[in-house]
């Protein structure tokens, strides 16, 4: 997890170095901050220890912020494509954004919100999906695969422009 988070962080920093426009830079700044915090959070998750309720609440809230950051990232990439005059890849990123909202932000966000409410109201919440969780795994891969597809479309779009 930490390795993956570091990869994402480096990728995000490299991307935001390619400054396009003000709103892209602003949105990417938010994504950068979250990506660093995600790395720290995965390191924290290595240590299994009972956490005070306030920290549990903070971790839940942070999870929610992370989902928002992922969506923000996709929107930033759409702007990036629009700025470069790549309309088809921009449409593709729009679809990637929708997938992340439907599959990540909505269900996971609700789960984290429920966790947050549970902590505040002093109950312990434990979501255990069991074997069903494994079946859900391919579903979570879908938006990521589409992210890859969008990237490939960007590449092809750029190549088409270069070759005329």
């Amino acid at each position: 997890d930490t390795l993956g988070a570091v990869l994402i962080m480096v990728g995000v920093f490299k991307l935001s170095a390619i400054a396009v426009q003000d709103r892209f830079v602003t949105l990417m700044r938010f994504v950068k901050v979250v990506s660093v915090l995600v790395v720290l959070n995965t390191i924290r998750a290595h240590f299994i220890m009972p956490l005070p309720p306030l920290v549990v609440a903070a971790v839940n809230l942070f999870g929610l912020v992370t989902q928002v950051a992922i969506v923000a990232f996709c929107v930033a990439m759409r702007w990036f494509c629009e700025e470069a005059g790549l309309s088809w890849p921009a449409e593709s990123w729009k679809f990637t954004t929708k997938l992340f909202i439907i599959i990540y932000l909505f269900p996971l966000g609700l789960l984290q919100l429920a966790g947050l409410v549970a902590v505040i109201s002093g109950q312990s919440s434990n979501v255990n999906l069991g074997p069903a969780g494994l079946l859900l795994l391919p579903v979570f891969v879908v938006p990521l695969v589409h992210l890859f597809v969008s990237t490939s479309r960007m590449k092809r779009g750029a190549e088409t422009i270069v070759s005329g």
């Binding site: 997890d1 390795l3 993956g4 988070a5 570091v6 990869l7 994402i8 962080m9 480096v10 990728g11 995000v12 490299k14 991307l15 390619i18 396009v20 995965t42 990439m77 990036f80 494509c81 470069a84 790549l86 795994l137 979570f140 891969v141 990521l144 992210l147 890859f148 990237t151 960007m154 590449k155 779009g157 750029a158 422009i161 270069v162």
Partner: peptide
């Protein structure tokens, strides 16, 4: 166009990172 080409590698990194995080 140049900036798009430069964006491909970091995007691929983010994809693999995301895959590792699932």
């Amino acid at each position: 166009v140049d900036s798009v080409t430069r964006a491909i590698t970091p995007l691929r990194m983010i994809f693999w990172g995301g895959l590792l995080c699932i």
